[in-house]
Design a protein around this nucleic acid. Structure first.
Lengths: 205, 205
DNA sequence: TAGATTGTTAATCGATTAACAATC
DNA sequence: TAGATTGTTAATCGATTAACAATC
């Protein structure tokens, strides 16, 4: 199979999102209509899908339920993934309570902290453990993904601990470019950068 | 000036982030070293900067403090922007308490909600008001940016209200493609899509 | 001066869009 | 059948990378 751009994967995810949102109202949809909802080019939508197979009927379009099913499978959302949340600050607590994650099969199984006041308690019925115990607990809970929501100063060191415990998939909310070997996939969510992007255009409006 | 790619703006923001993180330790830095920290090509860094002028010294590199100053100015971070937060759920509360925003000059001035239990109170010393009053309050507080963190079902209607009140810059956390006239700039933060991207590669590992 | 590094143009690469035969 | 829409190849477009003269 040809190498698939990471942007394609992100778009597939947005197609799925849009399909969820219309699934109550529509049974079938054409690439043209779906692309319009998403504000993109229908050719791109079809091209993205074509990397993975044929999902529509010529002259008709796509069955919404079928395409949802196919996309979930392509994206690995037909499985359950176990997640470790690192950092139980404001953002960590919000992420922990966020329904969107569990609905998609991402389950937060354990929380890591270094604040003695938080360690040993539970949050949302999830154990809050000391950073020190990461290694063993990653195995115990069969964690595949780590979510980083700690202060900037702690992030790099913690990321290395996580890497050494065997984790290779990280969702990073810390405004810092984390340095790990290239076999580790890191997706960065830089919220301030998004605002900054708005700021740039605001200043030139 | 040549049209500047939006990706360039996002990268400039990441350069600034990296410079903040090293500003305590280094006085000068070359494009080569800075690019290495960021995991990108130094040519790209120089190219991105070249859209806006000359910021380094040949044979030497860039003064960290100077480049920070220049980037802040380019990105409009030398100004204060007033923000309205819509939705005081888990995510809304986290965003409201997030230091990263205010540090960069993004000040949340008012919060909008439709839950009668929340309306009329204060959160972090910020007024929580009814959606109904958006129009007038946007003017009163001189708001430039709206942050959307409401349930999916309310987002489109609310976005239209915001648009009609004159806002043209939106940071959207709702997993929905919001449809507004093209003179409105919307940056989407789809947190689930980021996890989904990890899921895709996990499933194929 | 010699070495280093910028700013910028040119070359390459990849992604998006257009076009259209296949087919429902 | 005629109209619609897919799947896919080819053309275009833009972004990234390479290269190098300018210059500190």
């Amino acid at each position: 199979m040809k190498r698939i751009p990471q942007d394609t994967i992100l778009r597939l995810s947005s197609y799925l999102m849009a399909l969820f949102n219309i699934s109550g109202e529509m049974h079938e949809i054409s690439s043209y209509r779906l692309a319009k909802i998403l504000g993109i080019n229908p050719n791109q939508l079809r091209k993205d899908l074509s990397y993975f197979g044929k999902f529509g009927r010529r002259g008709v379009g796509y069955k919404v339920e079928d395409l949802i099913y196919s996309l979930k499978k392509i994206l690995g959302l037909d499985k359950i993934w176990n997640v470790a949340l690192c950092g139980l600050g404001n953002l960590g607590r919000a992420l922990c309570s966020y329904k969107g994650f569990s609905e998609q099969g991402f389950l937060i199984k354990v929380i890591f902290e270094n604040d003695p006041k938080k360690i040993g308690r539970k949050f949302n019925n999830i154990e809050v453990l000391d950073y020190k115990h990461i290694e063993g607990k990653i195995q115990k809970y069969n964690i595949q993904i780590a979510v980083l929501a700690v202060p900037v100063g702690q992030a790099q060191e913690l990321a290395e601990k996580i890497y050494n415990s065997g984790i290779r998939f990280i969702l990073n909310f810390v405004p810092l470019n984390i340095n790990l070997p290239s076999d580790c996939l890191i997706r960065n969510v830089y919220m301030s950068s998004e605002l900054t992007c708005l700021s740039y255009f605001l200043a030139r409006r």
